[in-house]
Design a protein around this nucleic acid. Structure first.
Length: 421
RNA sequence: GUGGGUGUAGCUCAGUUGGUAGAGCACCGGGUUGUGGCCCCGGUUGUCGUGGGUUCAAGUCCCAUCACUCACCCCA
Protein backbone atom coordinates (compact mmCIF):
# COMPACT_ATOMS: atom_id res chain seq x y z
CA UNK A 1 0.00 0.00 0.00
CA UNK A 2 1.23 3.44 -0.88
CA UNK A 3 0.60 5.86 1.93
CA UNK A 4 0.50 9.60 1.80
CA UNK A 5 3.57 11.55 2.85
CA UNK A 6 4.21 12.33 6.48
CA UNK A 7 2.56 15.56 7.53
CA UNK A 8 0.18 15.57 4.58
CA UNK A 9 -3.46 14.60 4.79
CA UNK A 10 -6.57 13.84 2.84
CA UNK A 11 -9.60 16.01 3.38
CA UNK A 12 -12.35 13.48 2.93
CA UNK A 13 -15.99 13.83 1.93
CA UNK A 14 -17.83 14.78 5.08
CA UNK A 15 -15.04 17.09 6.16
CA UNK A 16 -14.89 18.86 2.84
CA UNK A 17 -18.39 20.28 3.30
CA UNK A 18 -17.22 22.02 6.46
CA UNK A 19 -14.24 23.49 4.60
CA UNK A 20 -16.55 24.70 1.86
CA UNK A 21 -18.77 26.34 4.44
CA UNK A 22 -15.85 28.18 6.01
CA UNK A 23 -14.66 29.27 2.59
CA UNK A 24 -18.09 30.51 1.59
CA UNK A 25 -18.42 32.56 4.77
CA UNK A 26 -14.95 34.05 4.28
CA UNK A 27 -15.45 34.85 0.60
CA UNK A 28 -18.77 36.56 1.21
CA UNK A 29 -17.34 38.66 4.03
CA UNK A 30 -14.26 39.74 2.12
CA UNK A 31 -16.27 40.55 -0.97
CA UNK A 32 -18.60 42.74 1.09
CA UNK A 33 -15.60 44.80 2.16
CA UNK A 34 -14.08 45.14 -1.29
CA UNK A 35 -11.36 42.52 -1.05
CA UNK A 36 -10.79 40.75 -4.35
CA UNK A 37 -9.56 37.22 -4.75
CA UNK A 38 -6.08 36.70 -6.16
CA UNK A 39 -4.58 33.32 -6.96
CA UNK A 40 -0.84 33.09 -6.95
CA UNK A 41 1.39 30.10 -7.76
CA UNK A 42 2.27 27.40 -5.29
CA UNK A 43 5.88 27.54 -6.43
CA UNK A 44 8.11 30.60 -6.61
CA UNK A 45 11.77 31.37 -6.94
CA UNK A 46 13.42 30.66 -3.63
CA UNK A 47 14.86 34.14 -3.40
CA UNK A 48 11.37 35.61 -3.07
CA UNK A 49 10.95 33.92 0.29
CA UNK A 50 14.48 34.14 1.56
CA UNK A 51 14.47 37.87 0.94
CA UNK A 52 10.84 38.50 1.90
CA UNK A 53 10.52 36.37 5.01
CA UNK A 54 14.07 36.81 6.22
CA UNK A 55 17.22 34.73 5.78
CA UNK A 56 17.52 34.07 9.48
CA UNK A 57 14.02 32.84 10.18
CA UNK A 58 13.38 29.18 10.94
CA UNK A 59 11.07 29.00 7.95
CA UNK A 60 13.79 29.91 5.50
CA UNK A 61 16.60 28.17 7.33
CA UNK A 62 15.09 24.73 7.77
CA UNK A 63 11.46 24.41 6.83
CA UNK A 64 11.11 25.20 3.15
CA UNK A 65 10.60 22.63 0.42
CA UNK A 66 13.34 23.88 -1.87
CA UNK A 67 14.70 22.00 -4.86
CA UNK A 68 16.30 22.64 -8.22
CA UNK A 69 14.03 22.40 -11.22
CA UNK A 70 15.22 20.85 -14.46
CA UNK A 71 17.12 23.91 -15.59
CA UNK A 72 18.93 24.15 -12.27
CA UNK A 73 17.03 27.13 -10.94
CA UNK A 74 16.19 26.85 -7.26
CA UNK A 75 12.48 26.95 -6.58
CA UNK A 76 10.40 26.62 -3.42
CA UNK A 77 6.92 25.47 -2.48
CA UNK A 78 5.43 28.57 -0.92
CA UNK A 79 5.62 28.55 2.90
CA UNK A 80 3.30 31.55 3.14
CA UNK A 81 1.29 33.76 0.82
CA UNK A 82 2.22 37.34 1.57
CA UNK A 83 5.48 37.37 -0.36
CA UNK A 84 3.74 36.02 -3.47
CA UNK A 85 0.88 38.50 -3.27
CA UNK A 86 3.33 41.35 -2.88
CA UNK A 87 5.38 39.99 -5.78
CA UNK A 88 2.24 39.96 -7.95
CA UNK A 89 1.38 43.49 -6.83
CA UNK A 90 4.79 44.69 -7.93
CA UNK A 91 5.03 42.59 -11.09
CA UNK A 92 1.66 43.77 -12.42
CA UNK A 93 2.41 47.35 -11.39
CA UNK A 94 -0.72 47.84 -9.33
CA UNK A 95 1.11 50.68 -7.63
CA UNK A 96 1.02 52.69 -10.86
CA UNK A 97 -2.70 52.86 -11.62
CA UNK A 98 -4.07 52.61 -8.08
CA UNK A 99 -1.71 51.79 -5.24
CA UNK A 100 -4.56 50.92 -2.89
CA UNK A 101 -5.35 47.25 -3.43
CA UNK A 102 -7.18 44.81 -1.20
CA UNK A 103 -6.72 41.11 -1.88
CA UNK A 104 -7.58 37.80 -0.37
CA UNK A 105 -6.40 34.32 -1.28
CA UNK A 106 -7.10 30.85 0.02
CA UNK A 107 -4.86 27.87 -0.52
CA UNK A 108 -2.19 25.46 0.65
CA UNK A 109 1.22 26.37 2.07
CA UNK A 110 4.15 24.04 2.71
CA UNK A 111 6.53 23.90 5.64
CA UNK A 112 8.59 20.91 6.63
CA UNK A 113 7.92 20.91 10.34
CA UNK A 114 7.34 18.01 12.69
CA UNK A 115 3.62 17.29 12.47
CA UNK A 116 1.41 17.60 15.50
CA UNK A 117 -2.09 18.61 16.40
CA UNK A 118 -3.20 21.45 14.14
CA UNK A 119 0.10 21.46 12.26
CA UNK A 120 0.69 19.81 8.92
CA UNK A 121 3.39 20.06 6.28
CA UNK A 122 0.80 21.03 3.74
CA UNK A 123 -1.54 23.38 5.53
CA UNK A 124 -4.11 25.82 4.32
CA UNK A 125 -4.40 29.51 4.96
CA UNK A 126 -6.95 32.20 4.32
CA UNK A 127 -4.93 35.33 3.58
CA UNK A 128 -6.01 38.92 3.40
CA UNK A 129 -3.59 41.60 2.24
CA UNK A 130 -4.12 45.35 1.90
CA UNK A 131 -1.45 47.21 -0.02
CA UNK A 132 -0.89 50.94 -0.30
CA UNK A 133 -2.86 51.99 2.76
CA UNK A 134 -0.80 53.47 5.57
CA UNK A 135 -3.69 54.76 7.65
CA UNK A 136 -4.57 52.90 10.83
CA UNK A 137 -8.15 52.51 9.61
CA UNK A 138 -7.07 49.50 7.61
CA UNK A 139 -5.40 47.90 10.63
CA UNK A 140 -8.69 48.23 12.41
CA UNK A 141 -10.63 46.88 9.46
CA UNK A 142 -8.51 43.76 9.23
CA UNK A 143 -8.88 43.00 12.91
CA UNK A 144 -12.58 43.64 12.59
CA UNK A 145 -12.79 41.29 9.60
CA UNK A 146 -11.01 38.60 11.55
CA UNK A 147 -13.27 38.96 14.56
CA UNK A 148 -16.34 39.01 12.33
CA UNK A 149 -15.24 35.96 10.40
CA UNK A 150 -14.74 33.95 13.56
CA UNK A 151 -18.00 35.27 14.95
CA UNK A 152 -19.91 34.18 11.88
CA UNK A 153 -18.39 30.74 12.29
CA UNK A 154 -19.56 30.68 15.92
CA UNK A 155 -16.03 30.61 17.29
CA UNK A 156 -16.58 32.25 20.64
CA UNK A 157 -13.45 32.21 22.76
CA UNK A 158 -11.38 34.35 20.41
CA UNK A 159 -10.03 37.68 21.58
CA UNK A 160 -7.52 39.55 19.47
CA UNK A 161 -4.18 40.30 21.05
CA UNK A 162 -2.44 43.31 19.59
CA UNK A 163 0.92 44.95 19.86
CA UNK A 164 3.08 47.35 17.94
CA UNK A 165 6.56 46.43 16.78
CA UNK A 166 7.51 49.97 15.87
CA UNK A 167 9.28 50.91 12.69
CA UNK A 168 12.88 51.06 11.45
CA UNK A 169 13.18 54.45 13.17
CA UNK A 170 12.22 53.47 16.68
CA UNK A 171 12.86 49.74 16.83
CA UNK A 172 16.66 49.99 17.12
CA UNK A 173 16.32 51.95 20.36
CA UNK A 174 14.02 49.37 21.80
CA UNK A 175 16.25 46.59 20.56
CA UNK A 176 19.23 48.09 22.35
CA UNK A 177 17.30 48.49 25.58
CA UNK A 178 16.03 44.94 25.31
CA UNK A 179 19.49 43.55 24.58
CA UNK A 180 20.92 45.31 27.58
CA UNK A 181 18.18 43.87 29.76
CA UNK A 182 18.72 40.37 28.39
CA UNK A 183 22.48 40.46 28.73
CA UNK A 184 22.17 41.38 32.39
CA UNK A 185 20.12 38.20 32.91
CA UNK A 186 21.86 35.73 30.59
CA UNK A 187 22.22 33.03 33.22
CA UNK A 188 18.50 33.06 34.02
CA UNK A 189 17.51 32.24 30.45
CA UNK A 190 17.13 28.90 28.72
CA UNK A 191 19.71 27.84 26.15
CA UNK A 192 17.35 28.57 23.27
CA UNK A 193 16.90 32.13 24.47
CA UNK A 194 20.62 32.70 24.97
CA UNK A 195 21.16 31.54 21.41
CA UNK A 196 18.41 33.61 19.85
CA UNK A 197 19.01 36.70 21.94
CA UNK A 198 21.79 37.73 19.60
CA UNK A 199 19.92 37.32 16.35
CA UNK A 200 16.37 38.08 17.31
CA UNK A 201 16.13 39.35 20.87
CA UNK A 202 12.43 40.05 20.53
CA UNK A 203 11.74 36.32 20.36
CA UNK A 204 12.99 35.98 23.92
CA UNK A 205 9.92 37.92 24.95
CA UNK A 206 7.53 35.17 24.03
CA UNK A 207 9.54 32.21 25.29
CA UNK A 208 7.30 29.89 27.26
CA UNK A 209 9.91 28.53 29.63
CA UNK A 210 8.85 29.63 33.13
CA UNK A 211 12.35 30.78 34.07
CA UNK A 212 12.50 33.00 31.01
CA UNK A 213 9.07 34.40 31.62
CA UNK A 214 10.10 35.28 35.14
CA UNK A 215 13.36 36.82 34.04
CA UNK A 216 11.66 38.79 31.30
CA UNK A 217 8.75 40.00 33.42
CA UNK A 218 10.32 43.41 33.89
CA UNK A 219 11.69 43.70 30.39
CA UNK A 220 11.26 46.94 28.51
CA UNK A 221 8.12 47.06 26.41
CA UNK A 222 8.25 48.07 22.80
CA UNK A 223 5.18 50.20 23.35
CA UNK A 224 7.23 52.39 25.69
CA UNK A 225 9.82 53.01 23.00
CA UNK A 226 7.68 53.89 20.01
CA UNK A 227 8.46 57.02 18.04
CA UNK A 228 5.77 59.67 17.84
CA UNK A 229 4.36 58.43 14.56
CA UNK A 230 4.20 54.82 15.65
CA UNK A 231 2.69 55.79 18.97
CA UNK A 232 0.01 57.88 17.28
CA UNK A 233 -0.72 55.03 14.84
CA UNK A 234 -1.06 52.50 17.62
CA UNK A 235 -3.22 54.82 19.72
CA UNK A 236 -5.55 55.35 16.81
CA UNK A 237 -5.86 51.62 16.24
CA UNK A 238 -6.75 51.15 19.89
CA UNK A 239 -9.26 53.99 19.88
CA UNK A 240 -11.02 52.77 16.78
CA UNK A 241 -11.18 49.18 18.04
CA UNK A 242 -12.74 50.41 21.25
CA UNK A 243 -15.15 52.60 19.33
CA UNK A 244 -16.26 49.60 17.30
CA UNK A 245 -16.85 47.61 20.45
CA UNK A 246 -14.14 45.08 19.69
CA UNK A 247 -12.64 43.55 22.81
CA UNK A 248 -8.89 43.23 22.57
CA UNK A 249 -5.85 42.88 24.74
CA UNK A 250 -2.55 44.63 24.35
CA UNK A 251 0.10 41.94 24.60
CA UNK A 252 3.59 43.38 24.76
CA UNK A 253 5.05 39.90 24.41
CA UNK A 254 3.43 39.53 21.02
CA UNK A 255 6.17 39.42 18.43
CA UNK A 256 6.04 37.73 15.08
CA UNK A 257 8.34 35.23 13.49
CA UNK A 258 8.74 36.87 10.14
CA UNK A 259 11.17 39.70 9.63
CA UNK A 260 8.92 41.91 7.56
CA UNK A 261 6.49 42.95 10.26
CA UNK A 262 6.29 46.56 11.46
CA UNK A 263 3.95 48.53 13.68
CA UNK A 264 0.64 46.82 14.34
CA UNK A 265 0.70 43.06 14.89
CA UNK A 266 -2.14 40.91 16.08
CA UNK A 267 -2.97 37.30 16.83
CA UNK A 268 -6.02 35.36 17.79
CA UNK A 269 -5.65 32.42 20.11
CA UNK A 270 -8.02 29.73 21.23
CA UNK A 271 -7.86 27.12 23.93
CA UNK A 272 -9.50 24.49 21.74
CA UNK A 273 -6.38 23.11 20.09
CA UNK A 274 -3.89 22.52 22.85
CA UNK A 275 -0.46 23.91 22.21
CA UNK A 276 -1.22 25.08 18.69
CA UNK A 277 -3.28 27.92 20.04
CA UNK A 278 -2.79 30.57 17.37
CA UNK A 279 -5.60 30.35 14.87
CA UNK A 280 -4.87 33.58 13.05
CA UNK A 281 -2.23 36.25 13.00
CA UNK A 282 -1.03 39.15 11.01
CA UNK A 283 0.36 42.59 11.00
CA UNK A 284 1.69 45.51 9.12
CA UNK A 285 4.66 45.16 6.79
CA UNK A 286 5.34 48.63 5.51
CA UNK A 287 8.80 47.84 4.20
CA UNK A 288 8.12 44.65 2.29
CA UNK A 289 7.04 46.03 -1.08
CA UNK A 290 10.16 48.11 -1.31
CA UNK A 291 12.32 45.23 -0.10
CA UNK A 292 10.99 43.10 -2.96
CA UNK A 293 11.73 45.72 -5.55
CA UNK A 294 8.64 47.91 -5.63
CA UNK A 295 8.17 51.52 -4.63
CA UNK A 296 7.82 52.36 -0.93
CA UNK A 297 4.34 51.09 -0.16
CA UNK A 298 2.48 50.38 3.03
CA UNK A 299 1.11 46.91 3.56
CA UNK A 300 -0.79 44.88 6.10
CA UNK A 301 -2.32 41.44 6.14
CA UNK A 302 -3.37 38.43 8.12
CA UNK A 303 -3.44 34.69 7.75
CA UNK A 304 -6.00 32.35 9.21
CA UNK A 305 -4.86 28.79 9.85
CA UNK A 306 -7.54 26.99 7.91
CA UNK A 307 -6.80 23.53 9.27
CA UNK A 308 -6.93 24.76 12.84
CA UNK A 309 -10.03 26.81 12.21
CA UNK A 310 -11.73 23.79 10.62
CA UNK A 311 -10.85 21.66 13.63
CA UNK A 312 -12.32 24.25 15.95
CA UNK A 313 -15.51 24.64 13.92
CA UNK A 314 -15.78 20.85 13.67
CA UNK A 315 -16.09 20.73 17.46
CA UNK A 316 -19.50 22.32 17.05
CA UNK A 317 -20.65 19.04 15.50
CA UNK A 318 -22.88 20.74 12.99
CA UNK A 319 -23.96 18.79 9.95
CA UNK A 320 -22.96 20.34 6.64
CA UNK A 321 -23.67 17.25 4.58
CA UNK A 322 -26.12 17.38 1.71
CA UNK A 323 -27.95 14.08 1.74
CA UNK A 324 -29.90 12.97 -1.34
CA UNK A 325 -33.44 14.27 -1.54
CA UNK A 326 -34.63 10.91 -2.72
CA UNK A 327 -33.44 7.33 -2.75
CA UNK A 328 -35.00 5.10 -5.35
CA UNK A 329 -35.20 1.50 -4.25
CA UNK A 330 -35.87 -0.27 -7.50
CA UNK A 331 -36.89 -3.93 -7.45
CA UNK A 332 -36.48 -5.77 -10.71
CA UNK A 333 -34.70 -5.07 -13.98
CA UNK A 334 -37.41 -2.88 -15.51
CA UNK A 335 -37.59 -0.78 -12.34
CA UNK A 336 -33.80 -0.48 -12.26
CA UNK A 337 -33.75 0.82 -15.80
CA UNK A 338 -36.55 3.27 -15.09
CA UNK A 339 -34.89 4.40 -11.85
CA UNK A 340 -31.66 5.12 -13.67
CA UNK A 341 -33.55 7.34 -16.10
CA UNK A 342 -35.29 9.14 -13.23
CA UNK A 343 -32.05 9.69 -11.39
CA UNK A 344 -30.60 11.31 -14.48
CA UNK A 345 -33.65 13.51 -15.07
CA UNK A 346 -33.92 14.63 -11.46
CA UNK A 347 -30.20 15.22 -11.21
CA UNK A 348 -30.36 17.50 -14.24
CA UNK A 349 -33.26 19.30 -12.55
CA UNK A 350 -31.06 19.98 -9.54
CA UNK A 351 -32.49 17.33 -7.27
CA UNK A 352 -29.86 14.91 -5.97
CA UNK A 353 -31.14 11.36 -6.14
CA UNK A 354 -29.41 8.15 -5.15
CA UNK A 355 -30.09 4.56 -6.06
CA UNK A 356 -28.45 1.18 -5.94
CA UNK A 357 -27.11 0.40 -9.35
CA UNK A 358 -27.51 -3.28 -8.58
CA UNK A 359 -30.81 -5.09 -8.25
CA UNK A 360 -30.43 -6.00 -4.62
CA UNK A 361 -32.88 -6.96 -1.93
CA UNK A 362 -35.13 -4.25 -0.60
CA UNK A 363 -33.56 -4.70 2.81
CA UNK A 364 -30.10 -4.00 1.42
CA UNK A 365 -31.33 -0.99 -0.53
CA UNK A 366 -33.17 0.43 2.45
CA UNK A 367 -30.08 0.05 4.60
CA UNK A 368 -28.13 2.04 2.09
CA UNK A 369 -30.83 4.74 1.88
CA UNK A 370 -30.62 4.99 5.65
CA UNK A 371 -26.84 5.21 5.62
CA UNK A 372 -26.95 7.98 3.01
CA UNK A 373 -29.49 9.78 5.17
CA UNK A 374 -31.87 10.12 2.22
CA UNK A 375 -34.77 12.45 2.91
CA UNK A 376 -37.27 10.27 1.06
CA UNK A 377 -37.41 6.80 -0.38
CA UNK A 378 -39.25 5.69 -3.47
CA UNK A 379 -39.87 1.97 -3.55
CA UNK A 380 -40.86 0.82 -6.99
CA UNK A 381 -41.25 -2.60 -8.56
CA UNK A 382 -41.45 -3.62 -12.19
CA UNK A 383 -45.23 -3.26 -12.13
CA UNK A 384 -45.30 0.21 -10.57
CA UNK A 385 -43.47 2.25 -13.16
CA UNK A 386 -46.44 4.50 -13.95
CA UNK A 387 -46.65 5.63 -10.33
CA UNK A 388 -42.93 6.24 -10.41
CA UNK A 389 -43.30 8.44 -13.46
CA UNK A 390 -45.92 10.49 -11.65
CA UNK A 391 -43.53 10.85 -8.77
CA UNK A 392 -40.82 12.01 -11.10
CA UNK A 393 -43.03 14.75 -12.57
CA UNK A 394 -43.98 16.00 -9.13
CA UNK A 395 -40.39 16.21 -7.97
CA UNK A 396 -39.10 17.80 -11.13
CA UNK A 397 -41.84 20.45 -11.17
CA UNK A 398 -41.38 21.85 -7.70
CA UNK A 399 -39.69 21.66 -4.37
CA UNK A 400 -42.50 19.86 -2.62
CA UNK A 401 -42.08 16.15 -2.23
CA UNK A 402 -45.54 14.60 -2.33
CA UNK A 403 -45.56 12.32 0.64
CA UNK A 404 -47.44 9.09 0.29
CA UNK A 405 -48.03 9.25 -3.44
CA UNK A 406 -49.79 5.98 -4.30
CA UNK A 407 -48.38 4.66 -1.08
CA UNK A 408 -44.92 4.55 -2.58
CA UNK A 409 -43.15 7.46 -0.99
CA UNK A 410 -42.92 8.35 2.62
CA UNK A 411 -40.22 9.86 4.71
CA UNK A 412 -38.13 7.30 6.47
CA UNK A 413 -38.96 8.76 9.83
CA UNK A 414 -42.69 8.61 9.19
CA UNK A 415 -42.49 5.02 8.21
CA UNK A 416 -40.33 4.04 11.11
CA UNK A 417 -42.62 5.83 13.52
CA UNK A 418 -45.65 4.15 11.96
CA UNK A 419 -44.00 0.79 12.35
CA UNK A 420 -44.06 1.36 16.09
CA UNK A 421 -40.52 2.13 17.15
C1' G B 1 15.80 18.70 14.96
C1' U B 2 14.51 16.73 20.52
C1' G B 3 11.39 13.88 23.98
C1' G B 4 6.92 10.85 25.57
C1' G B 5 2.79 7.61 24.10
C1' U B 6 0.56 4.23 20.49
C1' G B 7 0.56 0.52 16.17
C1' U B 8 -4.05 -6.48 16.15
C1' A B 9 -10.42 -6.84 10.82
C1' G B 10 -13.37 -1.04 7.38
C1' C B 11 -14.19 1.30 12.84
C1' U B 12 -13.60 0.76 18.46
C1' C B 13 -10.75 -2.51 20.95
C1' A B 14 -9.61 -7.56 23.82
C1' G B 15 -5.73 -11.14 23.47
C1' U B 16 -3.37 -14.52 30.35
C1' U B 17 3.59 -16.88 32.68
C1' G B 18 5.33 -17.04 24.88
C1' G B 19 1.54 -22.44 22.52
C1' U B 20 -2.21 -22.33 15.45
C1' A B 21 -6.04 -14.84 15.77
C1' G B 22 -10.96 -12.81 18.86
C1' A B 23 -15.46 -9.58 20.28
C1' G B 24 -18.77 -5.59 19.30
C1' C B 25 -20.13 -2.38 15.46
C1' A B 26 -20.07 -2.16 10.13
C1' C B 27 -20.58 -4.93 5.54
C1' C B 28 -22.86 -9.24 2.55
C1' G B 29 -26.66 -13.28 2.32
C1' G B 30 -30.93 -15.50 4.53
C1' G B 31 -35.24 -15.85 8.18
C1' U B 32 -39.16 -12.90 10.53
C1' U B 33 -41.96 -8.55 8.95
C1' G B 34 -47.39 -4.88 6.05
C1' U B 35 -40.77 -6.63 0.98
C1' G B 36 -37.51 -1.83 5.58
C1' G B 37 -36.22 -0.44 11.98
C1' C B 38 -36.01 -4.23 16.15
C1' C B 39 -35.09 -9.53 16.53
C1' C B 40 -33.00 -14.50 14.74
C1' C B 41 -29.43 -17.58 11.62
C1' G B 42 -25.19 -17.68 8.55
C1' G B 43 -20.95 -15.47 5.99
C1' U B 44 -16.56 -12.20 4.32
C1' U B 45 -12.61 -9.33 6.09
C1' G B 46 -6.10 -9.62 9.09
C1' U B 47 1.51 -10.28 5.82
C1' C B 48 -0.92 -8.77 14.49
C1' G B 49 2.99 -1.56 11.03
C1' U B 50 7.84 -3.47 8.70
C1' G B 51 12.67 -6.02 9.06
C1' G B 52 15.87 -8.72 11.98
C1' G B 53 17.00 -11.53 16.66
C1' U B 54 16.00 -15.05 20.98
C1' U B 55 13.04 -19.69 21.24
C1' C B 56 10.85 -26.27 19.75
C1' A B 57 7.19 -22.19 19.42
C1' A B 58 6.58 -14.79 19.13
C1' G B 59 0.62 -10.63 18.47
C1' U B 60 3.26 -11.43 23.28
C1' C B 61 10.38 -10.99 24.82
C1' C B 62 14.84 -8.06 22.54
C1' C B 63 16.95 -4.70 18.65
C1' A B 64 16.21 -1.68 14.56
C1' U B 65 13.02 0.88 11.41
C1' C B 66 8.50 3.22 9.65
C1' A B 67 3.93 5.47 10.67
C1' C B 68 0.44 7.84 13.79
C1' U B 69 -0.04 10.91 18.02
C1' C B 70 1.06 14.58 21.95
C1' A B 71 4.58 18.05 23.62
C1' C B 72 9.19 21.02 22.86
C1' C B 73 10.94 24.08 18.90
C1' C B 74 8.58 27.12 15.29
C1' C B 75 4.34 29.13 13.33
C1' A B 76 -1.32 30.38 11.36
Amino acid sequence: MIQLIRGFKDILPGEVELWQHIEAVARALFADFGYREIRVPLVEKTVLFSRGIGEETDIVEKEMYTFPDRQGETITLRPEATASVVRAYIQHKYYAADPMQKFFTIGPMFRRERPQKGRYRQFYQINVEALGIAEPFIDVQLIHLLVTLLGRLDVTDATPHINSLGCPQCRPFFRDALLAYIEARQDLLCSDCRRRSRRNPMRVLDCKVPGCREAMAGAPAITDHLCDDCRAHFDTVRDRLAAMGIDYEVDKRLVRGLDYYTRTTFEIHTAALGAQSAVAGGGRYDGLVEMLGGPPTAGIGFAVGFDRLAEIVALQQKDYSRPPRLFIAALGPAAQTAAFGWQTALGLAGIPVEMDYADRSLKAQMRRADRLNAANVLIVGDNELAAGEAMLRHMASGDQVPVGLAGLVETLKTRLAAAGG
